[in-house]
Amino acid sequence: MNIFRLFGDLSHLASILILIHKIQTSRSCRGISFKTQALYVAVFVTRYLDLLYAEHVSIYNTFMKLFFIGSSCYILYLMKVRFRPTQDPSIDTFRLEYLLGPSVVLALIFNYTFSFTEVLWAFSIYLEALAILPQLFMLQRTGEAEAITTHYLAALGAYRALYIPNWLYRYFSEGTVDPIAVVAGIVQTGLYVDFFYIYFTKVLRGQKFELPA
């Protein structure tokens, strides 16, 4: 554990708490892509069910895994049951097969061991890298977002960005490289570049998040 990874994980944790807070206080999931949230459940379940069979890593690791599975399922419940009328599928139109298909194919080709659990792990890594796309696509379509939604996305993007110095640190201190996680992680972080540009130049200066026409 190093400081980049710790702050990355905490940022990830914070992003989820921000999202739950947004939905509960506004009693609405307006502006949130259900597809992206459903993909995160798929990511967490496929990656963290290793709790059932893999070697124990640490209490921290176990707690975080349970938190991510539990909270992502809770968000789906909030969106599909509790605040269902506020969720608008007509603007959440990104095709899931464009993300699931390539993730399955990549996982079958690029994995560390051609075993069920390792292919599942690789699948979750590739899917996580792409899972934000329905949300960013929705943002693109509506052209604007509530400040709290942008804070959620910024915390999520910061988590990804912080994993990059974490890998550099691990490379120099432990000599370990996880090429699948690194390549997918860099792609994933790259997806946030446009968002971050607007977040820093507008939202953090008190302006509304609006995409240029």
Partner: peptide, 10 residues
């Protein structure tokens, strides 16, 4: 270059 096992990152 070593293979991370178990996957210790989240």
């Amino acid at each position: 270059e070593s293979k991370p096992s178990p996957h210790d990152e989240l």
